[in-house]
């Protein structure tokens, strides 16, 4: 290997380049492999193990954890675990849908501001995005508690029992999730709308298209790349979310994130926790496969 090459102005040999490159690469690669990839893969092995009587891991091969995931427990079949999985999918779906509906007007509004003030409006969306999620969730807990006007209003309208709060409830979980993920849809949508070709909108209007038709035929197709990114950024983390259902949902509205957390804390059942995590991972990979196909040419804000 004495072939000489010029690489970024340096006269060197390929062997020397590779050697130096490897040294630069090694620390980060070893770190990510050692703390994320290998432990992640070992979850597969762990999910086939059993829980010992004191919460330790017993390496007996069994399919029990997957049977439990499908609902086959000690007392026959019950749909509880499956319900939690399906509910997580459903909550993520509804959250994404509502976020999209709310994000369009907001992103549109910001994109049509004059350039001087546009980034200030954008900052108003970025601020909640960077505010700690625990704080935002607990703020909703406050706002939905029995003494606050929102709950009082629901009480007088007869929607709530007197003295009851709006949380814990599924509604509170949806509200928390929607406000948490809204910026994730607004930001990529904004970057699509900002680069939108307005002559298409004008052409549609010149040809007497109705407002609805203008939106769906001239605007919507141009925002698809940003929208795809927004959907991925919302749907995937929403499935695994555990802070919001934990603080706003109460014990009756568990999501898959809570189920995983329980296995690693209260129940100390790591093998089952690993099986549930892999279930979530499969759902995630499926979502990412969609992303790979659709949203390639978009960069995040």
């Amino acid at each position: 290997m004495n072939r000489r090459v010029v690489w970024f102005g340096e006269l060197t040999t390929p062997a020397r380049l590779y050697r130096r490159g490897l040294w630069l690469l090694l620390p980060a690669v070893v770190w990510i492999l050692g703390l994320l990839v290998i432990p992640g893969l070992s979850l597969v092995a762990l999910s086939f193990a059993e829980r010992g009587p004191y919460g330790e891991v017993v390496w007996n091969f069994s399919l029990e954890n997957y049977a439990r995931l499908l609902g086959y427990g000690l007392f026959g079949w019950s749909p509880d675990t499956l319900f939690i999985l399906l509910r997580s999918l459903w909550v993520a779906f509804v959250t994404t849908l509502v976020c999209i509906v709310l994000a369009y007007p907001l992103a549109f509004f910001i994109a049509t501001r004059p350039p001087r003030t546009r980034y200030l409006w954008l900052a108003l969306v970025i601020i909640p995005f960077w505010t700690n999620l625990v704080i935002r969730t607990y703020a909703w807990q406050m706002l939905l508690s029995p003494d606050f006007p929102l709950a009082k209003l629901a009480q007088t309208l007869g929607l709530l029992a007197p003295e009851a709060g709006l949380y814990p409830s599924p509604l509170a979980v949806y509200i928390g999730m929607i406000t948490a993920f809204l910026p994730f849809v607004v930001l990529p949508l904004f970057s699509s709308l900002e680069r939108m070709d307005h002559s298409l909108v004008e052409a549609a209007q010149d040809l007497y298209a109705s407002r609805v038709r203008t939106f769906f035929q001239a605007i919507w197709p141009q925002t698809l790349p940003g929208l795809t990114v927004g959907i991925i950024l919302t749907f995937i983390p929403a499935m695994g979310m555990f802070v919001i259902p934990d603080l706003l949902g109460g014990a009756k509205y568990l999501l898959v994130g809570n189920l995983i957390q329980q296995q690693f804390f209260a129940s100390r059942d790591w093998p089952f926790g690993a099986a549930v995590s892999l279930g979530l991972m499969v759902m995630t990979l499926f979502g990412l496969a969609l992303y790979r196909r659709r949203g390639k040419d978009v960069d995040l804000v």
Partner: peptide, 12 residues
């Protein structure tokens, strides 16, 4: 996803 990341770290 955060939670899977966290679980992997716990196992590691």
């Amino acid at each position: 996803p955060d939670i899977i990341f966290a679980v992997a770290l716990v196992v590691a």
